[in-house]
């Protein structure tokens, strides 16, 4: 059971989060300008390292913020976590 540091709420149990996968694939600004190969690479090819991995999680049972987490896929150690951008105030 992972313990993930939510930058907004503090350390929380894994069960409060949902996984969002590789954090290193921002959506292209203009998909129409991409070739089929480039679009496919963005859509289907992800980082899959045996080691440290930057990934997205959503604190879905908490503040519902999407956060970045650097986690080791061999040891599950959470190296760091961060807010993706300053929280908007409503």
């Amino acid at each position: 059971m992972l313990l993930i540091q939510c930058p907004f709420c503090g350390p929380r149990d894994q069960v409060e989060f949902s996984y969002g996968g590789d954090a290193g694939v921002p959506r292209p600004a203009d998909p129409a300008a991409l070739s089929d190969d480039k679009w496919n690479a963005w859509l289907n090819e992800r980082d899959n390292p045996a080691g440290e991995h930057d990934e997205l999680w959503q604190h879905s049972m908490g503040c519902r913020r999407w956060i970045g987490v650097r986690r080791n896929t061999l040891s599950h150690e959470v190296v760091s976590s961060w807010a993706l951008q300053p929280a908007k105030t409503a």
């Binding site: 969002g20 921002p26 959503q58 879905s60 993706l84």
Partner: peptide
């Protein structure tokens, strides 16, 4: 809901949508 939150928080944080 989760998908829309993702888009607003991660991809398009500049949009003013709650």
């Amino acid at each position: 809901m989760s998908r829309l939150e993702y888009l607003l928080q991660v991809e398009w944080p500049d949009l003013d949508v709650y």
